[in-house]
Nucleic acid binder design. Structure first.
Lengths: 323, 323
DNA sequence: TTGTATGCGTTATCAA
DNA sequence: TTGATAACGCATACAA
């Protein structure tokens, strides 16, 4: 800025006026200044600006895997709501790696005003890396964290899902669980519903899929079919895993849904496109993202964050051909 | 910071030391300072920090639609490469809206150090909104812009694609084009290849799909089948449109690939999951994203940006069941 | 181990 | 219409 002022033969203050399109400046000098700006390729420092002009809000969004179509949709909701508030969003993909997640927090805690995201590290670790930064957790049970959170009501979802399967006559229902740091709410809800319906189902009917992907679902389904060949229906942790289950089952000669019913979770666009189309517990992922932004806003304004039903979206059973 | 220093009974300098984990500080005072930090909920201003510590780089990434699985994959590449360089990325979803895109540029030009993305506005407009900010354009032809760019070699792709269809005996080949601000390279390449092979194909065999989505592809395919019922193969602007084409064709009683061969573009994960699996011109989208980051780095360092083959990825024909 | 002085690049205030 | 001066909040060099 100093150089520009010198080249244009004015003070730095006048440079500021020209660059920011203020009034109170002679059109001639303004042109001269802008000319100097161009020749010197000068651009104002965003830091100096931010220091003196308050009001720019930047939030961090941490997600495990952009390749899983679930997260882009949540992110779309976040970006949309952030834009409406005039916020910017720095996105970080941890590729489901705890260490990378901590790195993300380290960096973001210095560079943004609040963080939201799917985080695997536990409260204690998060607190250490956060340094007082407001945090909104996605998808962590209300009693599982001291931070503000938004998430999914797995109980309500599985109540519908299992009831649907049982209504269709299934009793030997397996589950392909996702690999999560905390014992998942979906698994817990699955077992609770199984018990409630008196199904002959316990932990041995659950197989972990170490990847939240179609490939992971295929592998897991192979294992489930080996361990529990008598299974007639399977609930997938998410749609990708459920699609993998369908593929593995069909590869092994089982027809879907005749020999094996498949129920997914999330309601991805993909679920309508596979064959047979996937019956799934559909979630409003975009709304989840918007809700996260609202929680951040509450944190920032000192309001009480949302809790209970307001912060816990209920999935909706969408019945298609697979179950 | 001042308040913290006062509460802890030290100078601001000592606060800085405590907060930044420097040596040269008595453990006792450090604890006292951190205590004060906590009670006052103090967090350093990222602007003041940035002002004094150089080196934080933030890039902007502008994409048209996070819901189209193509873009998250590019974004994943961008984030990955950015992380390796220690950069942060502010993501903006324009929802394919030119005005929203200009707003993004307005904001980002003040808040980041460089911008990359899929932009519809033309060079002149971009220049006006950019204010000197370095820009890397994705997917704009080399001769179509004065900015640095990375993209896809549609010619090379369609050469393989059309040759494959012709080899299988197709001559009446239609295209479902995407709706783009500039006349698309894919369309041009499609027509050139059709001519080269002497196919009876011209603009009347091309239908615009106003949405880059499965639904858009369905609608467009309906229109194509109405206009050109004799079509035996169709090339979709992208995989989503191609999948839509398959669905429309089958809905109207045409078998794929027996009655209608379908060729996609992009190589999304989805293309393997639909039935029949989609033959497509597969693109390394993650690499595209990484390349964009490299271009930004070159721009920043004053190096010559990549051009020609280095910046233009060649798609690879992946033959599956649909064609 | 701690404090003082200085500067980072910008805008706001006020005087010229 | 312009310029001088004082913040903005922090970190670095140097002195104590």
């Amino acid at each position: 800025m100093h150089d520009v002022a010198e080249l244009a033969g004015v003070s730095r203050q006048t440079v500021s006026r020209a660059v920011n399109d203020k009034g109170e400046i002679d059109p001639g000098t303004k042109a001269r200044v802008l000319e100097a700006v161009r020749t010197l390729d000068y651009r104002p420092s965003r830091f100096a600006r931010g220091l003196v002009r308050k009001g720019t809000v930047t939030a961090g969004l941490v997600i495990p895997d952009l390749m899983n179509p679930f997260y882009p949709e949540v992110a779309a909701g976040v970006l949309e709501a952030a834009e409406e508030r005039g916020w910017q969003v720095v996105v970080w993909d941890t590729r489901t790696d705890g260490a990378r997640e901590r790195e993300a927090l380290t960096v973001l805690s210095h560079q943004v005003d609040a963080v939201m995201g799917y985080l695997r590290n536990d409260d204690e670790v998060l607190g250490r890396y956060l340094g007082g930064m407001p945090l909104v957790l996605l998808e962590r049970g209300p009693e599982q964290t001291r931070f503000a959170a938004v998430g999914v009501d797995a109980d309500a979802g599985l109540e519908q899902g299992i009831a649907h399967l049982v209504r269709a006559g299934h009793r030997r229902i397996g589950m392909l669980d996702g690999d999560r740091p905390v014992p998942g709410a979906r698994r817990t809800a699955f077992l609770a519903e199984a018990r409630r319906h008196g199904l002959p189902v316990d932990d041995s009917w659950i197989v972990m899929s170490d990847q939240h992907s179609v490939a992971g679902g295929e592998v897991a389904m192979d294992r489930l079919l080996d361990a529990r060949p008598q299974v007639t229906a399977v609930f997938g942790f998410n749609d990708l895993i459920a699609v993998g289950a369908m593929r593995a089952a069909r590869r092994r000669g089982r027809r879907v849904p005749e020999d094996l019913a498949v129920l997914g979770f999330d309601g991805l666009a993909l679920s309508e496109l596979v064959e047979p189309a996937l019956t799934t517990l559909h979630l409003d992922k975009r709304r989840l993202g918007r809700l996260a932004v609202e929680q951040v806003a509450r944190l920032r304004s000192g309001e009480e964050p949302l809790t209970g039903p307001d912060a816990w979206l209920v999935p909706e059973l969408v019945v298609r051909a697979s179950a």
